[in-house]
């Protein structure tokens, strides 16, 4: 579903965030990316929908090459790729439903979206997405009135409203407490399984990565240093990915062990 071939990214400041990464993700796979902060996890994810353009190499989604400079094509591609953010990225001053309807921006006539005159079908899809994450009763509530976990579920609903083939999640649990983190991860996992959506998820915590990922990809300083099934990723593997011994901060629940 997603293919990286010798992908590299160098930021204008000269920082090389990705070095020659080649990777292939299959349909409906749940892949977790781990690595220290600054290892290139966010860059890898944003390369898939062209929010960060590759400096060399290619990335393909299905059989379409991601070209961040072809505005029209990249928007069409982004419509197929849902994205979930660390900080939820909801517009807090508007309703939950309006936030979810942002997922329909590309599929609906521009004049309709500008006037807010979404079709019945769009609203139905948005409502179904909210039902999927079990928060539909908040549809007309302002997003600012929701808790962090609720906001993240709305963020997931927004991605689902796109009817995506791929969902990218950039540290979706970073601003949540441990129980809520598990709830959100469980939602993502079941969406991946039920709807056969390919998931590419960044996680800073080893225990969450092992508990929910089918496959784990390790990045260190922009380089791919591990790629294998989650159950094979033991403490030694993580130590290798991190390039240092593990600490209590690397797991979500401190008392839990790997």
């Amino acid at each position: 579903m997603i293919t990286f071939e010798n992908a590299s990214v160098t930021y204008p400041g000269g920082v090389q965030a990705l070095r020659d990464v080649s990777l292939e993700l299959g349909d409906g796979e749940f892949v977790v990316i781990v690595g220290l902060s600054g290892a290139g996890k966010s860059t890898l994810i944003r390369a898939v929908n062209g929010l960060v353009p590759l400096t060399s190499g290619t990335c393909r989604v299905g059989d379409q090459v991601v070209d961040a400079h072809d505005k029209k094509a990249i928007r069409a591609l982004r419509a197929e790729v849902g994205m979930i953010f660390q900080t939820h990225n909801l517009v807090k001053r508007t309703t939950v439903l309006n936030n979810v309807l942002m997922g329909r921006l590309h599929r609906t006539a521009t004049w309709r979206t500008l006037l807010g005159a979404y079709t019945k079908g769009d609203v139905e899809l948005a409502m179904q997405a909210l039902e999927r994450v079990e928060i539909v009763e908040k549809a007309y509530v302002r997003a600012s009135n929701l808790s962090g976990g609720q906001q993240q579920r709305v963020g997931i609903a927004r991605a689902l409203a796109q009817e995506p083939k791929v969902v990218l999640a950039d540290e979706p649990t970073a601003s949540l407490d441990p129980p809520t983190s598990h709830l959100v991860m469980r939602d993502l996992k079941s969406i991946c399984r039920d709807l056969n959506i390919t998931m590419l998820v960044n996680l800073p915590f080893l225990d969450l990565a092992r508990a929910y990922g089918d496959r784990i990809v390790g990045l260190r300083a922009g380089e791919l240093v591990y790629d294998g099934p989650a159950e094979e990723a033991d403490e030694n593997v993580f130590r290798d990915i991190y390039g240092r011994s593990l600490t209590a901060d690397d797991v979500l629940e401190k008392e839990g062990s790997l």
């Binding site: 899809l125 179904q128 039902e131 009817e163 039920d194 709807l195």
Partner: peptide
């Protein structure tokens, strides 16, 4: 419009 089937409502 069955692209997003609703999960069984548990809550």
């Amino acid at each position: 419009m069955s692209a997003v089937p609703a999960a069984p409502s548990s809550r």
